[in-house]
Design a protein around this nucleic acid. Structure first.
Lengths: 339, 339
DNA sequence: CCCAGCCATTGGAGCGCTCTAATGGAGTCT
DNA sequence: AGACTCCATTAGAGCGCTCCAATGGCTGGG
């Protein structure tokens, strides 16, 4: 039903090979023939079959992108930059969203492999290192948000230590000492972030105040953590959340409980999502250059896909603290209002 | 480099055809042969080549999904439901994000067509009806968030009139009469929503209060609109925003200007995004069943792809008003505080 | 005027798979 | 026993394209 190359060749009175060359932008086609072929193709509404092309040329202009959780705007921002980069280079993207399940992730990547994608970008995947190793073997791959020591895998990470130091420094300069951390649990980068918090606290002689509440990078887990802190009876004066979603969830619970942010408790998030800059939220946050993550990921990947590089690259970006309204000077220890 | 069917056949001591049948789950393969083939395939790490399969069978288990703007959580929610549905049915998704540019959208869809996707889902596309017609001709397609009269295109929309009536009814019952609308400009569904507002106002005898400020479904446009209303000197007592992003943008500006929501001005959004339910925002909103949109879109599409249906279906969902803290009884006309 | 050399163009094999029609070896029926 | 059905299995053509080696027409040097 769709026109094929043979149809175009017949209509233009040339061979299929010539048509093929035209659609590959080969320089050895005479301008007159090129025009003839293009005219015939246009008249027939011909569109090259990417499947057949990939099969015959054994090189695929499609890359697979796996996002951990598409409903977190973090991933949307990374994806946006990444997609733009891919499109300008003429690559298509097969997308999968893992929904925070590692089994799901593996299925999705297996699907990518069936489609013989030319490369793989995994953004904060949940799956184990061995799964990553197995699935990416021999395929150009870039991992965003996690660090892994595999030959064929480039990584893009954030300098967690710098971020944690900046956030803690800010809080300490406001007089805070009792600073808790709500972690991302087993999520990508959570361990690093937690370690950076602990180390940062220790560096400042605040080791005795180290307190970690386990979360999972979702807003719900932030709510749970906030309730936990409230019922514990020992509210810290400040919280460093593992990401903005957690921070926002916590803010809501504190607000409902009559605990004022920032006069009763200061909160720092991580990711600097767009929503954090909203006036109603105004969350102090460690900004990660998400667009840079996405762009760098696709660039590194395509370098490998094009065969321009075979050595491993690890790129680390520097975060920046964005101070907003959710942090303030430490006040008198809040009395938890009666419900 | 990857193992092929021939390799498996040789290793198992059978013909390629048999291997093919095994991987198609054909019932006519003897259990013993099936086991033999599967064992050989496992040993070789064989993975069927989806490209070659599609080419030979002329049916593609991939669908193209075009999202207008991935950074709006609205689309993430629709995508999530849609992807889940596709995966359980064994379909892969080629994703593109149009970034609110209709030229970009057309390029992306052209890419889908090159990949010979089996179907197309367009979520609130910007492009013109004639572009849609041209690109979707002969291909199963579902349009979400817009209504279009094309034979091969199913549509999924929201009942705007009911939504507007519910929102206006709520505001009127709180004593509001001076209710403005901030529209979505040329975005998908914006015209319908604007019309529903105007009609709803007229039905209630409030035609004289009809006032539309043009936006574009983004938070920024909400901020602009709010500033416009403030400087106009004639602040309405309530605003019906075309979506939550606009509403949230407005809330921020009002808050910064010292105009309290809801005591000075009530705001109703549209979409009921997750962020609207956050305590700090607590936006009254017309909820659209986004997950249903996504699921229905994929289901309708696959019905067509599987050839189970050829007639056009238009599915309309009922919205529901979710009342939160951004709406309240009309108070004394606010005096705009001096800066 | 002939042949080397260059160019655009072409034939045809092959990418990894599916699918139809054909094959052969049981088993069934009379 | 012969003819038949029924079943699992197979050969081989073909999906739309790429790419290599080969073709033929031209120019230009001797």
């Amino acid at each position: 039903m769709d026109a094929t190359m043979d149809d175009v060749a017949r209509a233009a009175g040339v061979s299929r090979s010539l048509v093929s060359l035209v659609f590959q932008d080969s320089p050895k086609v005479a301008p007159s023939s090129r025009a003839k072929v293009l005219a015939a193709a246009g008249a027939l509404g011909y569109r090259p079959n990417a499947l057949a092309r990939s099969l015959a040329s054994k090189q695929v202009r499609t890359v697979g992108v796996l996002l951990n959780d598409i409903s977190n705007p973090f991933f949307a921002a990374v994806y946006d930059a990444l997609a733009e980069c891919a499109e300008t280079r003429g690559y298509s993207i097969l997308l999968g969203a893992g929904q925070r399940s590692s089994a799901r992730e593996r299925e999705i990547v297996a699907g990518f492999l069936s489609h013989r994608v030319g490369g793989l970008i995994l953004v904060s995947p949940r799956m184990s290192v061995s799964s990553i190793e197995e699935l990416t073997s021999g395929l150009p791959s870039v991992l965003v948000g996690r660090d892994v020591r595999l030959r064929d895998v480039d990584t893009i990470t954030n300098d967690e230590m710098t971020g944690a130091r900046a956030a803690l420094g800010h809080l300490v300069s406001l007089g805070h000492r009792d600073i808790a951390h709500v972690s991302g649990g087993k999520g990508a980068g959570a361990a690093e972030r937690r370690a950076a918090y602990t180390r940062g606290m220790t560096e400042r002689g605040l080791a005795e105040y180290v307190r970690v509440v386990v979360g999972d990078f979702t807003e719900q887990s932030g709510e749970t953590a906030a309730r936990q802190l409230i019922t514990s009876g020992a509210l810290p004066t400040a919280v460093l959340a593992a990401n903005d979603m957690i921070a926002v969830g916590m803010m809501g619970v504190f607000q409902d409980a009559g605990i004022d942010v920032p006069s009763d408790i200061s909160i720092v998030g991580y990711d600097n999502l767009t929503l954090s800059s909203l006036s109603m939220i105004s969350l102090t946050s460690v900004a990660q250059p998400l667009a840079d993550f996405g762009r760098a990921a696709m660039e590194l990947l395509l370098e490998r896909v094009d065969g321009a590089r075979t050595t491993r690259v690890r790129r680390q970006f520097e975060p920046a603290l964005i101070v907003r309204g959710s942090t303030g000077a430490v006040g008198p220890r809040p009395s938890i209002p009666a419900r």
